[in-house]
Amino acid sequence: MRDKIPQVSIAIVCLVLGIMLALQFKATETYEASFLPSRLEELTQKLNVLTEERDTLAEETASLREKLSNVRETDEAMADLQEELHKANLAAGLVALKGPGVIITLNDSTRALQPGENPNALLVHERDIIMVINELKASGAEAISINDERIIAMSEVRCAGTMILVNWNKIGPPFTIKAIGNPDMLESGVLIKGGYFETLKYLGLQTSIQKEEEIEIPAFSRTIKFSFGQPVQYTETKEEK
């Protein structure tokens, strides 16, 4: 019995060492694997986006030319003006939109605070939200809302103590970010390797992203005022081409 003790304790210690090694392997594996860039996929996607953009621009040129000739004929000018107004409203975010897209949720970490650790490490900050919506914009989102606050050109996302201000409305966690656009494109844009969303996940925040067939994003509910800015008279120079 006596000379069995060393073997048993070496066995137990080896077991524990094995578990530690496996945990470490798993940790480094996931960390490294997630940083191996799948460049090919990224570049293909970029190419697709650019091709699409080029096509829409070409279409736009065609429709602009057509409009120009319409204006010259003056009969259909009014209808064109209506259409232009509709487009401007869409661009300004004054119309509620629905369509396919993604829903992202961000929430504070449920991890217990380590002694000496900064409690800020466990919270969702306004910069996290800004980075995520920036990523969405870069991935071709057409409309974005945070907790049903529509993001327009002049929307702020700002820290206000324990809450976050969006369009001068206070919102708190959990944050639901909805974006309309190509769901695959939006998802891969947000989940890009080494991107910000990944960092949030590593920091232990509760994150999720979900592709949806149809989501609805409300219109901007406040008024847009221009107290200081005045439009500069622009002259039609395109006609000369």
């Binding site: 094995g18 578990i19 090694l21 496996a22 945990l23 798993k26 940790a27 480094t28 590593y202």
Partner: peptide
């Protein structure tokens, strides 16, 4: 014993946060 430990570790539902790695 090391192998058994590795298998147990790999099948544990715990993922070590990078800061502690």
């Amino acid at each position: 014993c090391l192998l058994i430990g590795l298998i147990i570790g790999y099948n544990m539902p715990v993922l070590l946060p990078v800061i502690y790695a």
